[in-house]
Amino acid sequence: MKNIMIVLISLILTGSIFADELNVVTTYPYIASIVEQVGKDKVNVFALAKCEWDPHTIIPKPSFIAKLRKADILIINGAQLEIGWLPPLMRQANNSKIQVGTPGILDLSKHVELIDVPASISRAQGDVHPDGNPHFHLDFKNIPKISTAIAHKLSEIDPVNKVTYEQNNNAFLEKFYQKEKEWTAALEKLKGTKVIEYHKIYDYLLRRVGFQLVGTIEPVPGISPTSRHIESLEKIISSNDIKYILQDVYHPDDASKYLSSKYKINMKIIPHDIGSVSNTNNIFEFYDEIVRRLIGD
């Protein structure tokens, strides 16, 4: 009994003593990749969601609770993307540092401009996000805002390393702006191209490239395609010169494949997060690969 008590007490204490590196938990891999760039060796970062999963419906694994229990900072995408899976995990983690309203939580959606904010809300329109489209990280122009918000947050929680975080962020931004010019130049020729996407996940990217979205495979967000909807898409296809169907890695691709082969439209798998296709191991490679896939045949 005495031994058990000693083990328990030391377990309780270890959580608070070894706090050399800042424990940062992020909901999605892309956030973790930016945190790595800004925090470098001062942080220990872990992303909860796996890159090949639908970001809306992450299985709330109990192991996530253990990660959140030890987090100093929790960085979320926000705009209600995590609403279906994160709140109970946060409650179960018993970590007062990362509750809503405490400085230990950073909501990235508050640092970017959201598009498609619905004027009225009804679930008859599907699984709509009342704050606007939450997939803002697909526009690379939002990344500097995100990395700067992360640098500020890391500095706020860990003021000793403030200068390091600022320097890391500046170095990251310098490199990122350089790459941004390359991506913008490469995508220039695609302006005005008409596309179809499965889910409204690429809208920020479409806006950046200047793509024209003419339809989605989902009839409304979160609802699987119906044959009636596909028929109406076919009408749109026959009266429009559509070049690409953009498909993510986690939704079934049979509808996209069917339309692609019937109407000879190029179907492109576009990664929605870091690691969801090969050669996307960090935030730079992620956009490199998106650009490569968009401009390639």
């Binding site: 309780i12 270890t14 192991s63 609770i65 253990a66 030890k70 018993n94």
Partner: peptide
């Protein structure tokens, strides 16, 4: 009253 252990795996 419940307590989550600061372990790498979930223990409550």
């Amino acid at each position: 009253i419940n307590w989550v252990a600061p372990t790498d795996f979930y223990l409550m």
